[in-house]
């Protein structure tokens, strides 16, 4: 499919349900953009890239806001303890001063850090998808898919919304095509539900989502 055609399809696609939110709420979603945005061919890299890890707490806050979940339901290990601020707190750049004597964040991310980050995203994205598929009429992201529309347009609209809400920008055409195309790589049952989770996880665990 050509990029132009893809963009045209998106223009005709339904808008994500997130646009129903109160416009006066500064954290509420705005209307989901409908066209990808491609960068110029040349890039001027940062001269002094002072990139920081968001840390577990901020990351989970952003995920909650982006996926319209309550913060305390984003990820609970064994159903009892917050992944970001309790169980994986130190691995994700936090401290444990009173009990563990960890006064400062670890100087480098341990191997478990990206795994723990994935767990948070897997939990939140799975919850979002399960909730939307259980109640398509009030779904935040996946209403169309839950109601059986697995068209490229429907998936493209979801990807646009996920980029808008999780990365605060439009996807590029290449990103849009890649995430939409993931659907075609899946075999077996419940493809819409599975793709919904995976699209969210892939975007929510990019370095762009975890660092700033």
């Amino acid at each position: 499919m050509s990029r132009e055609l893809f963009a045209l399809i998106l223009l005709l696609a339904p808008v994500g349900c997130g646009s129903d939110a109160e416009p006066t709420d500064p954290t509420a979603p705005t209307a989901t953009p409908q066209t990808p945005t491609d960068p110029p061919p040349t890039v001027v890299p940062s001269f002094a890239p002072h990139v920081r890890f968001k840390g577990g707490a901020v990351y989970a806050n952003d995920l909650a806001r982006g996926l319209e979940l309550d913060r305390d339901e984003v990820c609970l290990e064994l159903g009892v303890s917050d992944c970001a601020t309790e169980v994986h707190k130190v691995a994700l750049g936090g401290v444990d001063p009173y009990d563990g004597g960890v006064y400062k964040p670890l100087p480098e991310a341990p191997v478990t850090a990206p795994i723990a980050l994935d767990r948070i995203a897997v939990s939140a994205c799975s919850l979002r998808a399960e909730r939307d598929f259980a109640a398509p009429s009030s779904a935040a992201f996946y209403g169309a898919l839950a109601q059986g529309d697995t068209s490229t347009e429907a998936r493209g609209s979801v990807v646009m919304a996920l980029y808008d809400r999780l990365l605060l920008r439009n996807p590029t055409t290449a990103e849009l095509e890649a995430v939409v195309g993931l659907y075609d790589e899946l075999d077996g049952d419940e493809l819409p539900r599975r793709w919904s989770k995976l699209a969210c996880i892939a975007i929510a665990t990019t370095t762009e989502a975890a660092f700033y």
């Binding site: 500064p26 705005t30 968001k54 707490a57 809400r165 605060l168 920008r169 700033y212």
Partner: peptide
């Protein structure tokens, strides 16, 4: 704005704020 909001408020700004 994104950095200030994350660093001092603990979350990212909204897309609308950035726009």
């Amino acid at each position: 704005l994104r950095k200030v909001t994350i660093d001092f408020c603990g979350h990212s700004p909204s897309r609308a704020d950035l726009d």
